[in-house]
Simulated assay, not measured.
Amino acid sequence: MQAKLEQRSFLLLLIVVTLLFLYLLKPFFGAVFWACVIALLFHPLHIRLSKRWGGHENMAALATLTVCMALCILPAVFVITSFVQEGHALYERVQSGKLDPAAIMDKLRTSFPMVESLFGRLNIDLDRIKSLATDAAVTSSRFLAQNAVQLGQGTLSFFASLALMIYLAFFLLRDGPELVNLLVRALPLGDEREYQLFGKFAEVTRATVKGNLVVAAVQGALGGLIFWALDIPGPLLWGVVMTMLSLIPVVGASLIWGPVAIYLLAIGHWTQGIILIAFGALVIGLVDNLLRPLLVGRDTKLPDYLVLLSTLGGFALFGINGFVIGPLIAALFIAFWQIFVEEFNPTADAQAVEQQAEELE
């Protein structure tokens, strides 16, 4: 009796202390999460370098992080800086009156009267939408302008998080296998199940990050390129926005190029509008339809609709990190249920259920 009480008390305190520790790490969730992602993505490179250099783990981890910074981190900082500069220029155009969202809405109403009639039947107030569009344009562009230094060059907290992420990634690359073995030993789920779940975690994380980022980068680059070719102001700004929106499956970049194409048609630039619609639907959309199932759905072994739902849910709950966390949770959900079915429902029972189903048919 005393031994059971002591054991239960210890387990209760273990849970409390673990939850307190996780709460303590909450402010650094983004840095810790992306350090784990970097370690998973670049682990094969680290292993290759470690073998080539005779097992010098520190040198291999440092070289791997250098490659990571050259390929990912430094270009991202450059793009963010350029993005904010474009946002500052957009704010100046709005303030000077060169770009007037209200005038754009009026032009759309004049060019497409059927839309106004349709909105009227649906009890949608276009004047209210015009006011909201103006306020949104001013607010967002002002935010980018006022925070150009902070967002472009980085605040102290941004650099602190970046340094913490790189620091943690170094140790995760170097000590990753030992940490996994320690977790397998600590968790009471059974070693075989734990290795299966850790394998699924690594597989889905790599596929989701690489697949979604490749698709988003390609779509954003194509969108910025066509904006530049059609002489649409701020091609880099809109290219970056399309890159971020492309993390959302199906709709993604069309949320930007679609309204711009409609506006071009409304002001009489038919050639530009038709080219943008054709390029967006046939080229940018084709990238999403071909690459995303190939790079994300195939490797995560998730159906397209589940990838979409889990990605949207991840965005809603976890922000920008959700495009990885959402599909990851969905994949672990499927993995847990597969383990449950395999271990708690024998094949014979499954075959019997199938036979009964065939008889009913």
Rank of each mutant, 00 (worst) to 15 (best):
L14M: 11
L20Q: 07
G220N: 03
H269S: 13
V209A: 07
A163D: 07
A160P: 04
M105G: 00
I15N: 12
W270P: 02
M242P: 01
F171R: 01
T110G: 14
Y23E: 15
Q356R: 15
A148N: 08
P235W: 06
V307F: 09
G258H: 06
P293V: 07
V324G: 08
K26P: 02
A281Y: 03
I80E: 10
V283I: 09
Q272S: 15
A61N: 08
P75F: 07
F159W: 15
A145R: 13
F29L: 15
Q150W: 08
F198M: 08
Q153R: 09
Q7K: 13
A63S: 11
W257C: 03
E361C: 11
L151F: 10
N181P: 01
A186Y: 06
D100V: 08
S131Y: 02
Y91W: 14
L265C: 10
G97C: 07
L126K: 05
F344W: 05
E6Q: 12
L255T: 11
V260D: 08
C72P: 01
E6W: 03
D135G: 11
A186L: 11
T271C: 01
A352W: 06
L360F: 14
L71Q: 08
P303A: 02
F170A: 04
V214Q: 11
L144F: 07
E343R: 09
F42P: 05
R193K: 14
G30S: 11
I15A: 15
G223I: 04
T18I: 10
V138H: 12
F33Y: 08
L302S: 09
F170D: 04
A278V: 13
N147I: 02
R206S: 10
G258N: 04
W257Q: 00
I334G: 00
W270L: 12
M59D: 15
L306E: 07
R121A: 13
L90A: 07
M69E: 03
D191L: 07
R8A: 09
A39N: 04
V77D: 12
Q7T: 11
V138E: 13
G273I: 05
P249V: 03
R185G: 10
E358R: 15
H43F: 13
L20N: 01
I166P: 00
W53K: 13
D299L: 02
D304K: 06
T110E: 13
L247A: 08
L302Q: 03
T110C: 14
V250T: 12
L306N: 07
L225W: 01
F201D: 02
M1S: 10
A89S: 13
G319I: 02
A103L: 13
V214F: 14
L360D: 12
L317H: 06
G55W: 06
